[in-house]
Nucleic acid binder design. Structure first.
Lengths: 189, 189
DNA sequence: GACTGCCTACCTATTGGTAGGTATGTGATA
DNA sequence: TATCACATACCTACCAATAGGTAGGCAGTC
């Protein structure tokens, strides 16, 4: 198997494990079982678990920012963009996956600093994106906000992140969509 | 040392560990270090980690429901009650602690079923309480809701849970209070 | 001939947990 | 009141399983 195949298979499987069991609770042995490669061989691709974790966040972040950029550039109204953004969370949870950085955030005190920083950066990117979209919507006179864009962005992110946690615990992914919709309706004057 | 002293010290310390590092990431060795008792002696109080985990949730739940009952019985207006409820989260995070079941929810797929059920029950108790308080507020004509009490309760819980996660990752506890306040303002017509 | 991708075989540290012992009660009975 | 039985709360010394990680070899490919 080509380098990239196994490597990306490992990354994909690691992502699933982190987003279901959490970073602390998954091991190279788990990956070994699922990919069908020896534990030691995983170290060939990812020398340490920390490097695997870093790579995981980085590639996820890269992929996600690309999607956010595409969404921001789309020629639809602000509200649709925000709803699509919310659907990212609703869909991933419906597929049985926690949002990556929501999953990582819980064990953040256990994570190596290199990963902590990336988790933080991840949340900042999300907040910044939401803030920019909201600000744009205001400029375009598409919507009015009941509080400053930054605060509103944090509220929307919190709502989605929290709805994911609650949905995860209650095993009911259906609560995310209406919760976010409502938060959005309540926010936009 | 009396039985209850060590036992409750173990529980208290375990709670801190779960609420900072997560359930998967803490060990009997951690407890041993912090309490000054041998690892094997912990098994005398809590035969297995699962029993410790169950006891932890149960006693936390007992303590919390008592507080919720007291708050519900208080003779203040609905909005004050909700704000006080929100302060539980804001304060615990300011003290460097994630909400217990928020922390557990992330690793829920790793937890034994006995603990999963309790985490679920925990969220249901919170939602039920919020719903009852909101319903009461409507009946007393203190407030009007833009959507049904159940949905509104889920939204408030999600907001707090999510704001805790975001605050935890960004290491900025200050975002919880305004986020919840805003969610509440937006919810109440 | 060097690099890639995997292997077997091994390492040390740590995990949750057990076996069996000891000191200090505590309560019932002769 | 002395003592016997039993429980409590801790201990040392283990255990098998698993954690993440290393050393070195070997087949194929550029």
């Amino acid at each position: 198997m080509a380098h990239t195949d196994t490597r990306s298979a490992l990354l994909a499987e690691a992502e699933i494990l982190v987003r279901t069991k959490g970073y602390a609770a998954f091991s190279y042995a788990d990956l070994s079982d699922r990919i069908g490669i020896r534990k030691a061989s995983i170290h060939h691709h990812f020398p340490t678990k920390e490097i695997l974790g870093i790579t995981l966040i980085d590639s996820y972040l890269e992929h996600f920012t690309a999607e956010l950029d595409a969404l921001a550039a789309k020629r639809t109204d602000t509200k649709s963009k925000l709803l699509t953004y919310g659907d990212f969370f609703a869909e991933s949870l419906r597929d049985g996956l926690m949002p990556l950085c929501g999953a990582l955030a819980a064990d953040v005190a256990y994570l190596p600093i290199s990963m902590q920083q990336r988790v933080k950066k991840f949340f900042e990117i999300h907040t910044d994106w939401l803030e920019a979209i909201l600000r744009d919507g205001v400029t375009q006179r598409e919507l009015q906000l009941s509080s400053p864009p930054r605060k509103s962005a944090l509220l929307l992110l919190s709502t989605l992140q929290g709805a994911s946690v609650v949905a995860w615990a209650l095993k009911d992914p259906a609560i995310i969509r209406p919760a976010f919709r409502q938060a959005l309706e309540n926010l936009i004057k």
